[in-house]
């Protein structure tokens, strides 16, 4: 066992006090923030869907969504005279274990992008073209489905695993 603690500067017993005002004040702030967080989640959170899931759940089309797919490089276009960019994406599985079983994300992206039977979804985005928006990049888009069946993305995030880190050895 470790050595005993020197006794001597043990604290004086505290006198009984009314409920601690600091605890009450702290709790109030905590509760207020929690409510803010909860309301904000209700207003701002998006459902994360794969493109296949999006197709079969039309009831979610009028909601704020986040979807993930692989970019088809040939379809990237800039609409002249505006900052509008359009491109097509196709489905990739959302589940990590499935991706792992199919040989990792780079293989999954390549397979999906070269699959002739895949059904593409058109994405519309306004802004500067991100450096990583290119063929076989994984795109994660936040936005809404439009009546014409395209997806209007407010946020666009891109991942390029094959080039970023663990490139295949060949």
């Amino acid at each position: 066992m470790v050595e005993e603690v020197p006794k001597g500067n043990t604290p004086k017993p505290l006198t009984k006090t009314k409920p601690n005002k600091f605890i009450i004040g702290g709790l109030l702030i905590f509760v207020a923030t929690s409510i803010l967080v909860a309301i904000s989640i209700k207003g701002n959170a998006q459902y994360y869907l794969t493109i296949d899931e999006l197709r079969v759940s039309p009831e979610k089309w009028n909601q704020n969504l986040r979807i993930s797919g692989v970019v088809l490089g040939d379809t990237i276009r800039l609409v002249p005279g505006s900052d509008e960019i359009t491109f097509q994406v196709v489905n990739i599985p959302g589940d990590m274990n499935t991706i792992e079983a199919m040989g990792g994300i780079a293989a999954v992206l390549h397979q999906a992008a070269t699959d002739p039977k895949a059904m593409p979804l058109t994405i519309i985005y306004h802004g500067v073209k991100p450096d990583l928006l290119k063929d076989e990049a994984q795109a994660i888009m936040t936005g809404r489905m439009q009546p014409d069946g395209t997806f209007l993305a407010g946020e666009l995030l891109l991942k390029c695993p094959s080039k970023y880190q663990e490139a295949p050895l060949n």
Binding site: T33, A45, Y48, L49
Partner: peptide, 18 residues
């Protein structure tokens, strides 16, 4: 078993007042 995500707008709204 749904995947909910939040983005910059949410962070700004919640951390802003703090």
């Amino acid at each position: 078993s749904t995947k909910l995500t939040v983005g910059p707008a949410w962070y700004k709204q919640t951390t802003g007042p703090v």
